[in-house]
Simulated scan of single mutants.
Amino acid sequence: MKLESEDLSAVFSIIDAPDWMNVIPLTPNNEIVLVEQYRYGIEQPTLELPGGMVDPGEMPEETAKRELLEETGYEGSDWEYLGKVSSNPAFLANYTHLYVVKNCHKVQEQNLDGNERINVHTMPLDDFLEMVKEGTVHHSLVVAAVAKFLLWRR
């Protein structure tokens, strides 16, 4: 982009983070599996989708399956890729990949990292969508995943 004035200058801080992923896990009863964890930026817990950082050499779908199992103890079948969104293009250089998976069942206990404190919740999908609509669920990447999901579902 060309600036009209040579007097303008700016310094930008860019974080070159690895890609992330989020997954919308649905049970056969059309319940969604969610994670609740404390977020230090807003100093309160948030209700979110399972997700995480894509490890080097790992494909986003592999990460989605691994993170779902580690964070919740659930596995599912019928995986669909919903696309990707810019995590925050103002200062992050990465993308967040979004998935939906059906037929989720609990198959094991959580296998959390040392710094993770995650509570697992299930609820009817419509109740969760209402929480997003009301703003109770407000994590921007979760809201973006819900938008992609609703477009995919229609």
Rank of each mutant, 00 (worst) to 15 (best):
L141C: 11
N119V: 13
M53I: 15
E116K: 00
E6C: 06
A144Q: 13
F91A: 00
N94K: 02
S9R: 14
E62W: 01
L69V: 02
H105F: 12
V11E: 12
A93V: 07
N94F: 02
N88G: 03
G73C: 14
D127C: 07
H139I: 05
Q44V: 00
Q44Y: 00
P124L: 08
E31Q: 14
N29T: 11
N119W: 06
H105D: 13
L98V: 07
V146P: 14
F149W: 12
E109F: 05
H105Y: 15
R117A: 04
P89E: 10
L92S: 01
H105G: 03
L68D: 08
G83W: 05
N29F: 07
G51D: 06
R66G: 01
T72L: 09
H139F: 12
I24N: 04
T136G: 04
E70L: 05
V11T: 12
A93R: 08
M59I: 03
L47W: 04
Y40A: 00
Q44M: 11
P89I: 00
T96K: 01
Q44E: 13
T46Q: 13
V120W: 10
T63H: 02
E75I: 13
N103K: 15
I24Q: 00
D19K: 03
K2V: 07
Y95P: 01
Y81A: 11
E31M: 08
E109C: 03
E6I: 12
I24Y: 12
I32D: 08
Y38S: 00
Y81E: 12
P25E: 02
E70H: 08
W79I: 14
V85D: 11
D19A: 06
Y38I: 00
L150D: 13
L69C: 09
W79P: 11
H105E: 13
L150A: 03
R154G: 15
L129C: 12
D127M: 12
Q37C: 03
E6L: 13
R154Q: 11
F91S: 02
K106N: 11
E67V: 06
M123Q: 14
K148H: 13
N29Y: 09
P56G: 06
L150I: 12
V100D: 07
G114V: 01
S9V: 09
N119Q: 13
S140N: 14
L34W: 05
L69G: 03
N103I: 03
E36A: 07
M59S: 13
I42S: 00
K2A: 08
L47Q: 03
G135M: 03
V132K: 02
K133T: 10
N94D: 06
E109S: 09
A64D: 06
A144M: 12
L98E: 11
G76K: 13
D78G: 14
M1E: 09
M53F: 07
L34C: 10
W152Y: 11
M123I: 14
N88P: 01
E61M: 05
V33K: 02
P18S: 11
H121L: 15
F91D: 09
K102F: 09
E70W: 09
E109N: 14
Y95A: 04
E109Q: 15
I24C: 07
E130M: 10
P60C: 02
P89Y: 06
N103Q: 15
W152T: 09
P60Q: 04
K65V: 05
P60V: 01
T27Q: 06
V101S: 07
T63C: 15
V120A: 03
